[in-house]
Design a protein around this nucleic acid. Structure first.
Length: 439
RNA sequence: GCCCCCAUGGUGUAGCGGUUAGCACGCCAGGUUUUCAUCCUGGUAGCAGCGGUUCGAUUCCGCUUGGGGGUACCA
């Protein structure tokens, strides 16, 4: 089995593309096949090298390693041109100056469901000659058989007037030359498939197998975009998701088997992936579920591993101790700093929190807490907890009436890792200093 | 307009003629807890509609409706 992922470098790798890449990768790894990366850059206007770099970066981050490539479609232009010449010579294609307007005029005359058929001229764009009779049958691994009647199809343009090859010609030729056995891509290419199969037939070649994946939508059922919070793989990475969690989540968007489990590690996905159980219906990207899955993966990480990931994400070192007391509270890497930044940056500025917990009502408790902590001879979590609970006891108040003021004094807000652990981590001097600052 | 794809709770899915329609996320309500988050328990909610086929349809077929894609000298 030889499969390929063939993005066009017109932007970052979006989530739908990432899923297509993942399914290709899973199919290849499952069957011991070869995963090929090809950049479809025949659109010179919209293709940009920096986009290619971004796509490669995204695939690397996702852990989807390719076996061959990246190949660039534009590099094969000589071969594409040769095929066009051959089709022209064989009478399977023809040049015509017919424009879009001419095609429309044809429809007006013969009806909307009658494909445009031009007459050969000695100049103009190259169109493939489509027979009126018969139909093109596409056997899809996911969708079964689809038949397109040839009469409905306009003779497709396969090369511009200047001779440069177009997508439907280039893909067909490249897949053929690369020995691709299974073309796995989005359903948005299903209609194109007819043209590509026709090109192959005109060349006297056999088409590969096809597997068309349903598309991904945003929460509103519309096309996935930035509005939905995340659009590209980079967005996901920047929001603190782990690549293994993204792989798991994306795999579930359009695939499921009888076990119907949610948490499936990558090696398990590889083992279980089958086209027969790929869904036909479009799926909506649901970030809440990704977040949940991410939390599960994140909490499974060893302390060392989690620390390394958090440090890489935050761009700082020496975060181990804080990760130790905050790791279980975060679902994504991005949540670490908002929760723990106060340790290095000092108390956050949260007027509401100060007003509520550092007012006159809690002053006695805070004072008492400062007192016992200052007198502590062993600065360790258990001792700190004991001392603070003693204050609760002595003041005859609720635990929160002591803990929350202390928390706000240290962190500046009402949310932080466990207060006893935070006290220990901050150290005696810094803790007392912040307490004094709040009194 | 024309061609094509799709349709189980809010979301992702299991189901492959006879089930109290299962699981997960979310949501709601409790519980654990020093805040938050986690975690535990329970609950809420679904086969788009109409015709067939059949003793019997979520499941098979058709139509309708709805959603999506294509219809470029883009990919």
């Amino acid at each position: 089995m030889r499969v390929r992922f063939a993005p066009s470098p017109t932007g970052q790798l979006h989530i739908g593309g990432a899923r297509t890449a993942l399914y290709n990768w899973l199919a290849a790894r499952h069957g011991g096949g070869t995963f090929i990366l090809r950049i479809e850059d025949t659109d010179r206007e919209r293709s940009a090298p920096e986009n290619t770099a971004q796509i490669l970066e995204a695939l690397v981050w996702l852990g989807l390693d390719w076996d061959e490539g990246p190949f660039f479609q534009a590099d094969n232009e000589p071969r594409h041109r040769a095929v066009v010449e051959q089709l022209l010579a064989d009478g399977r294609a023809y040049r015509t100056s017919a424009s879009a307007d001419d095609v429309r005029a044809w429809k007006d005359e013969y009806g909307d469901d009658r494909g445009f058929r031009g007459t050969a001229e000695d100049h103009g764009a190259v169109r493939l000659r489509v027979p009126d009779e018969g139909e093109t049958i596409i056997d899809d691994l996911i969708r079964g058989t689809t038949a397109f009647r040839n009469v409905h199809l306009d003779d497709p343009v396969i090369a511009r007037a200047d001779g440069s090859p177009l997508y439907n010609l280039a893909v067909a030729v490249d897949d053929l030359d690369a020995g691709i056995t299974d073309v796995i891509r989005g359903v948005d290419h299903l209609s194109n498939t007819q043209k590509q199969v026709l090109v192959l037939e005109a060349m006297g070649e056999k088409p590969p197998r096809y597997a068309h994946l349903s598309l991904l939508h945003g929460p509103d059922g519309k096309k996935l975009s930035k509005r939905h919070g995340a659009e590209s793989v980079q967005d996901l990475r920047d929001k603190g998701y782990l690549p293994e969690a993204v792989r798991n989540y994306l795999a579930l968007l359009g695939w499921g088997d009888a076990d119907d489990e949610t948490l499936i590690p990558t090696d398990e996905l590889v083992r279980r992936f089958e086209f027969s159980t790929v869904t036909q219906a479009p799926a909506q990207f649901d970030e809440a579920k990704l977040r949940w899955i991410n939390g599960r993966y994140l909490h499974q990480l060893s302390h060392e591993e989690l620390t390394a990931r958090v440090e890489a994400f935050v761009g700082r070192e020496g975060l181990g101790p804080a990760v130790a007391i905050a790791g279980e509270k975060i679902q994504t890497l991005a949540e670490f700093w908002p929760l723990c930044g106060f340790i290095w940056d000092g108390p956050a500025n949260d007027p509401k929190a100060r007003e509520k917990w550092l007012g006159a009502a809690n002053a006695p408790a805070l004072l008492a807490a400062r007192e016992v902590l200052g007198a502590l001879d062993r600065w360790a979590t258990e001792a700190i907890e004991g001392a603070l609970r003693g204050v609760v006891e002595a003041q005859g108040v609720k635990p929160n009436d002591v803990f929350q003021p202390v928390r706000v004094a240290l962190a500046g807000t009402t949310v932080s890792p466990g207060i006893f652990e935070t006290l220990e981590l901050l150290g005696r001097d810094e803790s007392l200093k912040r307490l004094d600052g709040a009194i």
